[in-house]
């Protein structure tokens, strides 16, 4: 326990996107801080290494920060929590506000 179901997958793909675009943790954190992120730089570093769990909202902000830095360039983009399939479909109870019906589809294609 300790990690939500979606978290490892979301984290892995964020790291993949950062690595492909050669974005450093410091750069990511500054962007994330700029858009209202509240987790410290060391914690973000620890999260990226899979040593720390952070809340879904902060994970989505990190994904958004990464995607803003990627700025539509080719390569993988960082997924949001609702884009990551739950490995276990029932009873996962991952997020309390997960059933938003007015956001049915995913983001615009980033390429």
């Amino acid at each position: 326990m300790g990690f939500e179901r979606k978290e490892p997958e979301q984290r892995r793909r964020l790291l993949e996107a950062l690595t492909a675009a050669r974005i450093s943790t410091g750069t990511l954190w500054l962007q994330y801080f700029s858009i209202g992120g509240s987790v410290g730089e060391y914690e973000v570093e620890a999260y990226l290494q899979g040593m720390l769990s952070v809340p879904e909202l902060e994970r989505d902000l990190l994904a958004m920060a990464a995607n803003e830095l990627l700025n539509n360039q080719a390569g993988p983009h960082a997924p949001y929590a609702d884009e990551v399939p739950s490995s276990d479909s029932n009873g996962s109870d991952a997020g309390p506000a997960d059933s938003e019906p007015d956001l049915p589809s995913d983001e615009a294609d980033p390429s």
Partner: peptide, 20 residues
């Protein structure tokens, strides 16, 4: 505040623009 930030993220994604 948390819900508000979630909504902003959703709007930014829908419109393909930055959070700022």
């Amino acid at each position: 505040q948390e819900r508000a930030l979630q909504q902003l993220i959703g709007n930014a994604r829908d419109q393909s623009i930055t959070l700022q």
